[in-house]
Design a protein around this nucleic acid. Structure first.
Lengths: 189, 189
DNA sequence: CGCGTCTTTGAGTCAAGTCAAGACTGGTGG
DNA sequence: CCACCAGTCTTGACTTGACTCAAAGACGCG
């Protein structure tokens, strides 16, 4: 269902406020969704990796903007056909519920980040990535600015947090965008 | 519907996790609801004034603890009777929806406070109180600690914020618990 | 290579938190 | 009626974590 489509890096998939005609599934590459708040300012930035859905909306408009972080292929599924199937196919209806409730849970977890220090946020982010990719070696497809926005810190603070984790050998930096995660839970200094 | 009941100051109305048998409406006095997080630590602290409902739960358990801030009278309404009425009386069903959606809206607004400075949070809180009471002279029924927890700051920071507002004659302090709000929106120094 | 972008590092600032002390308040008993 | 006391609130001095500004270092692509 739906059709695969190529997206180049930084390509805008949809903008906040635009009519939500399709839902999307990442097949390869990586996507960011966020709420634009002024020039160069973004909040609620989230990442979507292969297998993830994005662009799910209850009403007719996108509440987030979405852009490709790397070149990738996304499955574009017209909302109409989803709605049509959901009424007849119970399995699809259930998986829709599943997808949205998981998104909701993620959003609620995300609220909590304000109660944690920069180091904790970064550590949590890395652990999350490791869990999602199921490998100790984590590939950061996205630039530091995206991660910083996701965690609600500045790129400098992010960089310093990474250095601190590195000094404590909690991580090793293969390259700037490749990190080995050598810890299982964050321990304050 | 339901029966009025007296509550003394600091009386626990219900604790988080307890079965939710009733819903409540404040008739006089003031209530705080919150999530207990460790000894002397609370989050998501909210206030409920005369006319407000509290203790509304979707499932059978209270997700918040509730205590009377001052002596007061609350209407105690058994959930069963509400549920029974709601299925037959459309007006009640609608007002239930109204009440819960307003609670939800308040909760979503509340999320945003982390993006504001202490002074902004305090100013916003005072404006909110003035709006709710419809008078410039605001009576703070609750101790500073409650307000601080509500705004996610410390009592010292709260106190300093109030002095700063006072120095700028945005407010005048009739007494420690009585404040005149003389401004319409917060202006950074 | 060389340029532009991305990332790290350094130095300084600032808002809010902590710790500690003093001031105010309201209630109680002498 | 006043003095005292406990709880509440304010103030001061200090610490700290994150942000800003500025500059240097690394990387990738032509």
């Amino acid at each position: 269902m739906g059709c695969a489509q190529d997206f180049a890096r930084d390509r805008v998939v949809f903008a906040r406020g635009a009519p939500a005609r399709n839902i999307y599934k990442v097949q390869s590459g990586c996507v960011r969704t966020y709420v634009p708040t002024g020039p160069n300012r973004r909040t609620d930035l989230a990442f979507h990796f292969p297998g993830d859905y994005f662009g799910l909306e209850l009403d007719g408009k996108h509440s987030l903007s979405a852009e490709a972080i790397s070149d990738g292929v996304f499955l574009v599924i017209p909302r109409k056909s989803v709605a049509a199937c959901a009424t007849t196919d119970l399995a699809i209806a259930n998986s829709l519920i599943d997808i949205t409730s998981r998104a909701l849970k993620r959003a609620q977890e995300y609220r909590q980040i304000h109660y944690h220090s920069a180091d904790e946020r970064v550590a949590h982010f890395l652990l999350d990535l490791r869990k999602r990719f199921k490998r100790k070696e984590v590939e950061l497809t996205m630039p530091r600015q995206d991660i910083a926005d996701h965690l609600n810190i500045t790129i400098e603070t992010l960089s310093r947090a990474l250095t601190r984790l590195h000094n404590r050998s909690a991580i090793s930096l293969e390259s700037q965008r490749r990190i080995n995660v050598n810890f299982n839970r964050y321990q304050p200094a």
